[in-house]
Structure formats: C-alpha cells, structure tokens
C-alpha cells in the first residue's frame, strides 16, 4: 500500500486517497478557440509514462484536497508531492 504525503495532512496510507490521473493534462481555457486535435488530446490522449509520472491524487477520506504526486510508475517510488498550483 502506497504511503503518500498529502501536502496538507502529511503522510497517510493510500486507502485514504483516490487517484486522479495524469496531472500534466491541462484543460483548455473556456471560450477559447482551439483545434479539434487539441481538444481530443485533452480528453483522450495520455502519455502514460514509464518512470517519473506527475499525477493527481485526491484526499477523499481526509481533507478532500486534490494535489500532485510525482511517482515512478515502474517502481511506485514517490519523489515529491505538491499542491495543485505548485510545479516541480
């Protein structure tokens, strides 16, 4: 079971969290003219990196905050956790 450091609550076991997918995917701004391909890529395309992966987790059984985790997808090692607005 992963041990994840919530940036608000500290180290907690994985069963308090829900996974939220690739954090490098950013939603296009509202009302902005974009290409179909940009939209498709936002909705569907994922790099699915092997190795360091920046991803979202949600502390659902805790503070209910979303945050970012940098984790190795081949070893599950966690390097860093960040608040949503922070970047590596």
């Amino acid at each position: 079971m992963l041990h994840i450091k919530c940036p608000y609550c500290g180290m907690r076991s994985q069963n308090e969290f829900a996974y939220g997918g690739d954090a490098s995917v950013t939603r296009p701004e509202l009302n902005k003219e974009i290409l179909d391909s940009e939209w498709d890529s936002f909705v569907y395309l994922r790099k699915s990196l092997k190795g360091k992966h920046l991803e979202l987790w949600h502390h659902i059984s805790g503070c209910r905050q979303w945050f970012k985790v940098q984790r190795d997808t081949s070893t599950h090692e966690i390097f860093k956790t960040l608040k949503p607005g922070e970047s590596i």
Binding site: M1, L2, Q14, N15, Y19, G21, D22, S48, L49, K50, H53, E55, R71, T73, S74, T75, H76
Partner: peptide, 13 residues
C-alpha cells in the same frame, strides 16, 4: 490497483 503502473506487482489492499 487503480493508478498508472508498469510494475507487474501490486499491493494487498
């Protein structure tokens, strides 16, 4: 297991 993984090893929960 519910998160991106290439590990071929999971957790007990």
């Amino acid at each position: 297991d519910g998160y991106n993984s290439y590990a071929q090893r999971g957790n007990l929960p």
